[in-house]
């Protein structure tokens, strides 16, 4: 499809150049995310190539020391909390918005998406200022609340996409057959949009799990998450443990989002 029906030599050259260029761009995209992997197995204490030897010592540091263990624990607490709240509320909102008659849809959508657009430092600093007044700074609840704001747009969008394939007549049919609204939601709607909901949940999880700026402002020393520990490490105590942590984080994010993406695709194709 790239070539015209009767390609000239010039055209062939152009297409070859296109392939070369795109190959380089793909390298540019992939090499940097693969770099932490070999570095994390470096046995030396400094953060440089060439590797001094192969060892799992930095994974041991990340998985065995109290500092990193508590960071992993905090990350999971915050990410799970965020996922539950953002997925529940985001799904409800997406269902409400999928109704054409929803009042003020054109105004509410941009507002819902604005946490993605507002520079995160502003969100973080504002949250810090407000949460400190209401006693939510340095609490898990505060961090989870702020992360929910950042993560819920993803849920609204993915669930919204899976709802475009959902036929509302099914709900009417359920109602006529005598199902109560909650029953028809759990028995009819949810199973059909579940792939979208799960993929939204995965996005919410990863958004929170990877977030560092809000945490930097809201977390006290005992609530440091993995990304924050990494950020501090990059600035203060450079150690290859960071690359081990990065590899772990990257592995988890990619795994979750791969699943999410497959689910989302299936959700959109689902017969309705």
């Amino acid at each position: 499809m790239l070539l015209s029906p009767y390609p000239t030599t010039g055209e062939r050259i152009r297409i070859t150049l296109l392939w070369i260029w795109c190959g380089l761009v793909i390298l540019f995209l992939l090499v940097p995310i693969l770099i932490p992997v070999p570095l994390s197995f470096n046995s030396g204490a400094f953060f440089i190539f060439p590797l001094e030897g192969i060892s799992a010592r930095w994974y041991e540091v990340v998985l065995r020391t109290q500092r990193w263990q508590s960071a992993i624990g905090n990350s999971l607490i915050v990410a799970f909390g965020t996922t539950v709240i953002a997925t529940t509320l985001g799904t409800l909102t997406a269902i409400a918005l999928s109704d054409e008659k929803f009042p003020g849809r054109r105004i509410i959508m941009p507002l819902l998406l604005s946490p993605l657009i507002v520079p995160v430092v502003i969100t973080a600093v504002g949250s810090y200022l407000f949460y400190a007044r209401v006693g939510l700074a340095s609490t898990y609840a505060g961090i989870i609340l702020a992360h929910t704001a950042l993560a819920s747009p993803f849920v609204v969008v993915t669930v919204g996409a899976s709802l475009t394939g959902f036929d509302r007549n099914l709900m009417r049919a359920a109602a006529i057959s005598g199902a109560r609204p909650l029953t028809s939601f759990f028995r009819v709607m949810l199973p059909l949009i579940l792939p979208g909901v799960l993929s939204g949940a995965a996005f919410a999880f990863v958004t929170s799990f990877d977030e560092v700026v809000v945490v930097q402002f809201l977390a006290s020393a005992s609530q440091r998450t993995m990304p924050l520990e990494m950020f501090i490490g990059l600035r203060e105590k450079l150690s290859p443990a960071i690359t081990a942590a990065a590899t772990l984080m990257m592995g988890l994010s990619i795994l979750l989002l791969l699943v999410a993406n497959i689910l989302a695709r299936r959700g959109r194709k689902a017969p309705a």
Binding site: A96, K101, F102, S114, V118, S127, F130, S152
Partner: peptide
């Protein structure tokens, strides 16, 4: 009913995101 469904998230966003930014 639609508004009611959307309300929890909207209220949460106002509290956790809107008010902090306006306050700042």
């Amino acid at each position: 009913r639609s508004l009611l469904l959307a309300a929890p998230l909207l209220i949460l966003l106002v509290l956790s995101f809107g008010i902090p930014i306006v306050l700042l």
